[in-house]
Structures are given as structure tokens and as C-alpha cells.
Design a protein around this nucleic acid. Structure first.
Lengths: 232, 232, 232, 232
DNA sequence: AATGAATGAGGATTCATTCAT
DNA sequence: TATGAATGAATCCTCATTCAT
């Protein structure tokens, strides 16, 4: 199931080609739809070699998926760290932009990530999902905590709740660019990066405002006139 | 592609069994992974009958999927309409609760939706997904507009943006119950309905607050002194 | 295998519809390609009825084929008998024209006749082929014999040989109109009846001349200049 | 559709066996009737291998058919070229004899041709049949033209008409040996080669005479007095 | 180490036919 | 008599995987 040393020993550029082509095959067809036969033909190498390298279809997918998660988490972590000192809104905006950039630069990787999410009968699922979870939780939690510590957010805000919301919206924002039918009425398309940036800006402001406004008492008195909203 | 009259003519309880078992097969394996052979065996009927009933694997899936969408949309629409007069927060809470109820009552249906969402390049993907999206958008848009008209939300709030965020969070909230690894740090599990209800309450308040707090100018001047923030 | 009395008892126009549609199905798809399921659907009657009427697919085909042969032989026999007193060339021309007319009027029938010819593993083959053979041999032999008796053809002409050649060319002439790729360089198309008639005229003259010229000594001395051909 | 290199790489005798057995399967059952499953069983190899070799049933058929056409056209071309200097009658006789020889030597090939001719609406029908027709036309046209140029035939003879007749009779002559019920009253059977040769001799003389006798004016005046016909 | 021929289970689908209603 | 639901064998074809070379 694991990548064998045989694969490590072949020339680096061939390794790269194999993984790139495999990623494309999985991205285009999904795990079940992908075919080792077709992949071997794409690559012009022997079918046997693929099994020598990765043991099985699953083994190959594992390798491809690991790489995909690594590449995405790296980009996002960098965006987070570069904005460590900024207020929440610009940070979120930068993170959304980075999501845009990643999905544009590595569309195959993102599609594989998506396919993986709900692939229930996959043997290595546990391992993969823990990776994904860690990515999203460990990545956003510091952003929220730092904002709270800096006084930008109410101290009684539940950080888990905030991370949950941010994660959901961030995920959907990226997804909506890869899958236009997800964009609902928003201007989000791979063809118009500028529109995506404007939407990211508005979204970041909205999210930051939401968290800042979060009140400890869940449901405020009805009819409170907006003008004298105590939160403003 | 369409359900034939043959299927309409068989006993209702047999119709039910066929659709239930088919839903389970698709939920467990996804579209590509599902097998008409296996399904026929599960049902103890001839393979040919399935094709008589539904024409093709796609035809069967279409039937199952349409039913699923109907069942979910019905529940959500009801939740929305029953709360037509209430303020935003309790409405959202009720909608989140309804999502919880639906995913618990029809886990297979939700699993099929998930499979479709990210998973496979099956033939009718586009048609089905746009159906789901339209459902969700048409469903949430009135909620936002009514809240705005009632003065609960700022008049310059972009409704599409608000719907986008609500949809993303609602989706994730339901997903997190079907897939506990998605819950991040939140208390959300199919085993503890009470916890889910508490989380729904907090989440609804957070979202309502977000929309209320939304400012017309997307990104406020960076230097906004936090000092005069009443929340401090 | 035989048409049952059940079929004889249904309304005549329904009988007609069933046989017409069946003929079309067999003509379009061939025996193996034809589908009883599809035919029943075309007719809008129950599958079971077809089997009640004809016992089996083969039984239905037998019925259709018998009808086809009857209709063709009837037309040709009539053409022959109407021209009983004429010289050979006009008789052949009239027969060729009748072939043209038949294949234009009943294209399905002709296509079925063709399909039947080489359908080796058909159980009723013997019976069918004897019908076809009888048709062609019994039909043309009198034409040749009468021409010989009337002194139009050399008395030592082998009638079987003459019938063989006439049958081959007549068959091909009709076939070439049903299947244009068979026409080689000749002007023969279903769209242009006049061209077919001209070709028939030339062909009839050629054939009549051939038979008239037939010499008892098979291979004439080489180089014999045509001008002093002893046969003229 | 094309034969893959996989097939080229297996031992020659296995290649031969596969093609021979495939030819027999198609000859016995026709294109639709032939079964890849049955063929694999006949050969004692895996089903998958056949598809590796030829891609599809059509691909296999194309290979078998191309081989068949090649083998037949080669023999006929040789017969034609060997008799380039001879008068028409002996040339035709030699060609008829070669037809006899080919159908005896490769009965399966001829049976496949027959199946294709009239039988089925299989996918590549048009392509294959036009190939066969072109072969036959291109093959006979030079024979006719050379005879005309050598003064053996009237210069105003329509070559297309002559080729049409020759082709029809040649075809039927060969067919009559493969399918005795087609022989009408002629002595033509696979069991008695000598009888076939005698018939070929008579037929060749008849055909040569036909062409020689062909008059420029298609239909001679009906009243032509038979009394001065030297043949009487 | 790499190859690629061989495998045979399994895929979706169509079919002629039967028989209870 | 007519129906049409049920059957399950057979169709072509693809697949991941193995293993002798």
C-alpha cells in the first residue's frame, strides 16, 4: 500500500510525471472512475510498473492525496503567518485570496481533495480525514485566538464556533470557484480573478463584523431598532 | 431515464422496498460504486426487472435523487414557513434544527447528496447539483429579504452574500452531524441530539448577529480604534 | 412455430398492422437484430400477444418471409405472363422493369428476402430456400424455353445455363437499386426511375443478344476479326 | 478498432489460431450472431485477451474481413494478370476457375462475405461492402477494356454494363458452389470440381459471346426477321 | 527493475420467453 | 384472449492485478 523504494529510485522527473498524470486521472474521473490501465497508457509505461511503485490503486491514490493536502496546507499556512499582525478583516481577506490562488493554480489538487472528502469506503479514510481536519482546525484556530487576544473579538466568543463558521465559508468560497454552480448569485468565476477578489473583500468584512458583533446573549430582544443597537 | 409505468404498477410496498434498497446502495457506494447486479441480489429480484422499471442505472438514480431532494426541501420549506413571523435568530435556529432532524431521519438521503457533491463525474451531475443549489438559494433568499424588510438587517446588505454565508454554514452544520470528523471542536453528533440543538442555538445567534452587524463600507479603515468598540 | 388461429381471429386491419410493422423491424435490423420487445412497443400491444400469435420470433419471421416471397413472385409471374408472345428482349426488359417496380414499392419486402438468403443457422431454412429456388427457376425457365421454341435462340443453347445467367443478372439488377453501392458504374438509383428504365433497356438487349449469339463451340479461334465473325 | 501491438507480439501460431477460429465463428454465425465469449472459449483464452488484441468485436471483424478480402483479391488478380494476353473466353474461364478454387480453399472467407452482403446491419457494413465492390469493379474493368482494345468486342460496348453483367454472373457462379441450392439446374457442387470446371467453360463462352454480340443500338427493331439469323 | 501478456470476475444492459392474472 | 411483470442467460466490454520473461 505504501510507495516502495523502487519508486524513490527512479529519476526525479519521471517520478514527477507519474504523480502529475496520476493526479490528473484521479481528478478527472474520481477514485472509482480512474483506471490504472488508462494511466499506464497515458504515461507510456508498463502497467506492472505502477503496481511495483505503489502496490495498488489505493496505494497510488494515497500518495497523490498526501501530496495534494500538503501543497494546499502549505499555501494557507503561509498566508496566515504572513498576516500575523494584521486585524481580522484583512487577514481573512488574504486567506480567501490565497484560496482563490491555490484553486486556480492547482485545480487538479483541489478536485482530488474534494473527491476524497466523502469517499466512505476507502480503506485509508481515517488517516486522510485526520489530516484534513487537522489542516482546517489547526489553521484557523490561531487566527481566531489571536484576534480575540488582541481585543478585536469579544472575549466570550466561542472559538470553536467561530472556527466552524469560518471554515465552512472559506471552504465554500473556494469550492464555488472550482464549481461555478456553487456560486449562487455571487460573482465568482475562474475566468475573472478580479471579481473573486472583490467578493473576497466583502466576505472578509462580513465575517469579521459577524464575529465582532457576537453577543453573549444568543437572541437579542425582538424589534430592537437598528439605530440604537447597543452593539454599534 | 424516466420511471416506467411498469414500476407504477407493482405493489406499493414493493416499490418502497426497491427505492429504499436502491437508496441504500447508492448511499453506501456512490453512483459509480453502486451495482445494479448487487442491488437486484439485495432485493431478490431479477436484474432485468430493475431495467424494466427505470430504464438504466441513471434512471434509477434520478428517481432516488429526486425523491431525496423532495423530502429534504419539503422539510426545510416547512420550517421556513412556520417561522415566517419570527425574528431572524429563532428562524435560523429552527432551520438548523430541521436540518438536524432530516439528516437523522434520512441518513441515506444525505449520504447520497454528499457523494454527489464532491465525488464523482457521473453523467447527470450538473443537472442534479444545480437542482440542489437552486433549492437552497431559493429557500434562504426569502428569509434574508424578509428580515431586511422588517428592519432587522441593514438595508444595504447584499442579500446574495448573506445567502451564500448562510448556505455554507447550514450545509456544514448538517454535514458535521453526518460526518463527525467535520465537527471540528463543536459538540455535534448523531448520538446526542440535545448537544446539536444547543449548538444550533449558538450558531443561529452568531449568524443573525453577523448580518445585523454588516457595514455598508466593506472594509473599514484599518486604523479603526478598537478602543471605542462598545464590546470591550 | 406456425401462425395460430388466434392470429387469424383478430381484426384484419390489426393483422395487417402487425405484419407490416414486423416486416419493417426485420428489414431494418435483420433477424438477429430484430427485437420482439421493440416490435411489441412499436405496435403498442402486449409482448405476450406476439408469442400467442406466432409462437416464437422464428414463427413470426416465417410468416413475414412467406408473405414477402409471395408478393414478389406474384408480380414477376404476372410480368412474364403478360409478355408471353413478345420476343426475348422486350420480355426481359419488362421483367427488369417489374423488378424495379417491386423493389420500389415494397423495399422492406426485398430487404427481408435478401437477409434470408444467407441466414444459415435458421431452422426453417430448407423450406424457405426451396421456395426461393422454385421462384427463380420456375419463373425464368419458361421464358428461355419459349424463346428457343420460337426460334429466337439457338436450339443447342443449354437452358439451365441461360436461366442461371439471367437469374444472376436480374437479381443483381434489383439488388443494385436497393443497395446503391452495388450499382458499380451504372445509373441505377431509387431516386431516378427513368435512369433505371434506360439501363434495363440496354441490359435486356445485351442479354438477349448474348443468348442469341451463343455458339456450340465454347472458345472460338483466337484473333478472329470481328468483321468476319462467322456468328454474324 | 485497430489491431494492437499486443496481438503482433504473441507467437505467430497463436495469432494464426485466433484469426482462424474467429473467421470460423463469424462464418458460422454472422457478425451479430458471433459471440466474443464463445470465441474465447473456443480458443481457450481469456475474454479480456481478445479485447486487448482487437479492441472490440468490430475491430476483430475488421481484421478478419480485411484478411479475407486480401486473400480473395490476390487470387483473382493473379488469374487476371496471368491471362493478360489471352482472348476473352479463356480469360473468363480462368477467372471462374480461380473463383472455384478460392471458395473451396477458403470456405469460411466466402461465407463471411455472404453474411455481410445481404445479412445484417452491422456497424461497418457500408465501409466493407464498398471495399468489396470497388475490388470487383476495378478487377473486371481492365479485362473488358483490354478485350475491346484488342478488337474482340465492339468499340461502342458500354464497359460499365459489361462489367456489371460479368460481376453478377461471376458472383453467382461462386455462390452457387458454396450454396448448392443456388445452382438451379447447373452442375455445380463443391464435391465435384470437374463438373464445376465444365460449367465454367460453357459459362465463359456464353459471356464472351454475349459481349461480342452486343449491338450498338440497344433494342433492335422488333421485326428483325429471324429467318436470316445465321444461327438457325 | 521493467515489461506487457494473461487473467477472469464483474460491469451495465438487452433479450426471448413464460405465466399468473 | 390479452396482458405485461418477471425471468436469468447472454451480450460486449473494462478492470485491477499477477507473473514469467
Amino acid at each position: 500500500m505504501e510507495t516502495t523504494s523502487t519508486f524513490q529510485n527512479i529519476p526525479t522527473d519521471k517520478q514527477l510525471r507519474v504523480l502529475t498524470e496520476a493526479r490528473a486521472e484521479f481528478a478527472e474521473r474520481g477514485f472509482l472512475g480512474a483506471s490504472m490501465n488508462r494511466l499506464a497508457a497515458r504515461l507510456g509505461i508498463a502497467k506492472g510498473s505502477l503496481f511495483k511503485y505503489f502496490g495498488s490503486k489505493e496505494g497510488l491514490f494515497a500518495k497523490v492525496f498526501d501530496q495534494a493536502v500538503d501543497r494546499f496546507s502549505e499555501g494557507l499556512r503561509q498566508a496566515r503567518d504572513e498576516t500575523a499582525g494584521l486585524p481580522l478583516a484583512p487577514r481573512l481577506e488574504r486567506i480567501l485570496d490565497e484560496g482563490t490562488r491555490l484553486v486556480r493554480q492547482h485545480p487538479d489538487i483541489y478536485r482530488i481533495y474534494l473527491k476524497m472528502l466523502n469517499h466512505e469506503d476507502f480503506p485509508l479514510r481515517e488517516r486522510f480525514l485526520s489530516k484534513v481536519r487537522a489542516l482546517s482546525t489547526r489553521f484557523l484556530t490561531p487566527v481566531v485566538l489571536q484576534a480575540r487576544d488582541r481585543g478585536e473579538l469579544p472575549p466570550d466568543l466561542d472559538p470553536d464556533l467561530a472556527v466552524f463558521v469560518l471554515d465552512a465559508v472559506l471552504d465554500r468560497f473556494v469550492l464555488a470557484q472550482a464549481e461555478p454552480w456553487m456560486a449562487a448569485g455571487l460573482a465568482l468565476s475562474l475566468e475573472d480573478p478580479e471579481a473573486a477578489r472583490r467578493t473576497a473583500r466583502k466576505l472578509a468584512a462580513l465575517l469579521a463584523g459577524m464575529l465582532r458583533a457576537n453577543a453573549p446573549n444568543p437572541s437579542p430582544p425582538e424589534g430592537t431598532p437598528l439605530g440604537i443597537d447597543p452593539l454599534r
